[in-house]
């Protein structure tokens, strides 16, 4: 019957709308469902996954020594050329042998895609991915970084 269907239509439509409103009404009144994390305020308690790939860093120990021998396998592994290693030759004081070492480990953070292939390729575990993310800058040039610290040298025994 036409009238009956017409009224049924309206009733079912209103019911479906009421179901939706009931759900949004539930969330409006239940503030414990709010999942917002307030970033700058929760900075002290913010725990990032230790595997999070935020930038490449080169850990230095207390003697200002790192483990990079300058073999450039990371530079070769990098798919988009964000690593450039400038090497030099150190002369060993005792034996007088010339030994390859890094002069500057240039890291283009502006190019880096955090794929992690350089870390995988490194034979001496000299570099790793650090879980940091607060890198924003006003000047693009500041994103080109030198990872080895001034005056640092290769840790003894790392070949």
């Amino acid at each position: 019957m036409f009238i009956k269907d017409y009224i049924k239509d309206i009733a079912s439509a209103l019911k479906s709308l009421a179901t939706g409103m009931k759900m949004t009404g539930y969330y409006f009144t239940h503030h414990k469902e709010i999942i917002t994390e307030q970033y700058p305020d929760n900075r002290d308690t913010l725990v990032l996954a230790e595997r999070f790939k935020g930038e490449v860093v080169m850990p230095h120990d207390e003697n200002n020594e790192h483990a990079c021998t300058g073999c450039t396998s990371c530079e070769l592994a990098c798919p988009n050329g964000s690593i450039k290693i400038i090497t030099k030759f150190d002369v060993d004081a005792e034996t007088g042998k010339r030994k390859k070492a890094i002069d500057t480990w240039v890291y283009h953070l502006d190019l880096c895609t955090m794929c992690g292939l350089c870390v995988e390729a490194c034979p001496t575990n000299a570099i790793k991915m650090a879980p940091t993310f607060e890198h924003s800058v006003f000047d693009r040039n500041k994103l080109v970084k030198k990872l080895n610290e001034d005056g640092s040298k290769v840790r003894a025994g790392v070949e």
Binding site: Y27, F28, H31, E33, I34, T36
Partner: peptide, 10 residues
């Protein structure tokens, strides 16, 4: 504010 609370944010 109404929008935020319905949308489970602050």
């Amino acid at each position: 504010k109404v929008a935020a609370w319905i949308q489970i944010r602050l």
